[in-house]
Design a protein around this nucleic acid. Structure first.
Lengths: 253, 253
DNA sequence: CGAGCAATTGAAATGGGTCAAGACGTGTGG
DNA sequence: CCACACGTCTTGACCCATTTCAATTGCTCG
């Protein structure tokens, strides 16, 4: 659980100009000189082992994180132990920023795989934004984007059947994974247990199992071990209620 | 209200320095000179009758809105007509800003009561943000806040029973309403049908009716007509799973 | 006074939850 | 190399919260 003991704070880090996720995060809009300024501000890169928490809800935290690689989940714990997973974050995600910059965290974050994050200090971030307005604008866009994602999940969980919810999640994960993969075909890693999926969708792991079985029997996906293979992208996105991104033309209405 | 404001170049609109919701919205961080700049940028105040849409999802929209008074709901329509209400917005809310500033809207917005909004043009908002980074930062905080709200709703909808969900919504509305009301006691206006409540919580209006009946019979709330009276705030927040101040110790199984 | 929408109530159907038992890995230690 | 332990997945049987369908009662407003 405790990760701070395990990680050595060292300044040796990848250089920002070579950052693999630069285009997707707050630094996207910055030129090289500005990037150097951010680099000076940056604390370190940090490796997080799978299963450990970046931060816990209701606790204080002084950092902001950009995911370099690996998966992180944001989740909320209820008093009686029930868990709601709010979001699965992949490379490029900017994590830890909330409305009350100085208050305790509103939710928890846990690594699903081994993860590398770029760490910024939270203190002074608004001064940095003030000096680099492009960064602030970019940050605002990211915040808006993540609000839209939350709305989409809410619609799926609030209004969808189990089958629709699972399809929506898989479709979402698949299309987001594509952004980070070179080849479009082939199975993609899915570091989630069925309990994770259930906790993200408001379902029981038992029922997730049954639902996946149904999708498997309809030859829509093939989930084995920790990998997901989408067999019928069209059908999957259809069920999910999402418009397939690059779908072959077909009269849908 | 006393009007000791100095004379400023006026359009046909309320003056920004006197804005009633200034402290809660994107302008909060701005000084008077910057506020004048925003005022020059501002298009107009606009009255929206109850029931009409500010904008529709998938359609283009050139404006951004700050709610001056009244209630607005943000909602998502699914292909088959099911509706998910994402958020109820009250005075001070900043609406219409999304990650893709030039693209079609990701969700719809409809007035639940007669509403007055302050209208900004969408084009050039990023330039404005760039000139006033405080405003961008403020916006990001607001967006983050709304994401946190969405997460809280998601946890409620994904993991709560009908009773818990309804209690959570009522508790949330009640505490937010308090911010805009002088006297703490007494019934507060609730411009929602039970169908609205159901669509916000992933429930049927029929079941909302039954659930409210249960809360009424337990003397926790009294909902009559379009107004809500919280009778037992402690119990309501207890059921909602929100901490009102400090829950009395009680062995919850 | 009647039209129309919102709320209530009852009865029946069902999607998903719960409980419980097994199967299937996969990594560990002997 | 085996055995065993632990976590995950699967499957069956039953249960129940919520939905669905349907009828009735208000309430508001023209």
């Amino acid at each position: 659980m405790d990760l701070t003991a395990r990680t050595l704070p060292r300044k040796s880090q990848a250089q920002c100009v070579n950052c693999g996720v630069r285009a997707q995060t707050v630094c996207a809009a910055l030129g090289d000189p500005q990037l150097e300024e951010v680099e000076a501000y940056k604390l370190r890169d940090q490796s997080i082992p799978a299963g450990s928490d970046l931060f816990l809800q209701d606790e204080q935290n002084d950092h902001l994180y950009t995911v370099q690689n690996g998966w992180i989940m944001l989740y909320t714990l209820l008093k009686d132990g029930r868990r709601q997973i709010n979001e699965f974050c992949m490379a490029g995600a900017f994590i830890g920023c909330q409305s009350d910059l100085t208050g305790p965290m509103a939710y928890s974050a846990q690594a699903l795989t081994d993860v590398t994050v770029c760490v910024l200090p939270r203190a002074g971030i608004d001064a940095l934004f003030r000096r680099m307005p492009e960064m602030a604008v970019r940050f605002a866009c990211i915040a808006a984007k993540s609000q839209e994602n939350a709305f989409a999940t809410l619609a799926s969980v609030g209004r969808g059947s189990a089958r629709e919810r699972v399809a929506h999640l898989l479709a979402d994960l698949e299309s987001r994974s594509q952004e980070h993969r070179s080849n479009a075909q082939g199975p993609l890693p899915l570091p989630l247990t069925q309990e994770h999926i259930g906790d993200a969708l408001g379902l029981t792991s038992v029922h997730v199992s049954r639902t996946l079985k149904g999708l498997r029997e309809d030859n829509i996906v093939s989930v084995q071990g920790r990998s997901l293979q989408v067999l019928d992208r069209q059908a999957l996105f259809e069920i999910a209620g999402m418009a397939p991104v690059a779908a072959p033309s077909r009269p849908t209405e």
